[in-house]
Amino acid sequence: MAVDPCAKCEEVLQPYLDRELSDAEMMEAEAHLELCSYCRKRYRFEVNLRRYVRQAAAEEMPPQLKEKLSALRTPLL
């Protein structure tokens, strides 16, 4: 049975973006992405999603917590 190239591309999405693929696998994925807009859209989405998750998850530390942490310091003699 022939391997579905889009299924294969989906399988390597994460290692591709993490730069964990071998050169040969990288070239294979890029050749497919060049031709396939279905996979290309999903790869671009993943790049944006990772950036968005990082941004959306960024929460400032409450200032009163910072004060509490400072208060835990060893008192100077």
């Binding site: 998850a57 960024a58 929460e59 400032e60 530390m61 917590l65 910072k66 942490l69 400072s70 310091r73």
Partner: peptide
């Protein structure tokens, strides 16, 4: 303490 913002995140 300087790293606490990053650690909190």
């Amino acid at each position: 303490l300087e790293l606490s913002d990053q650690v909190y995140r």
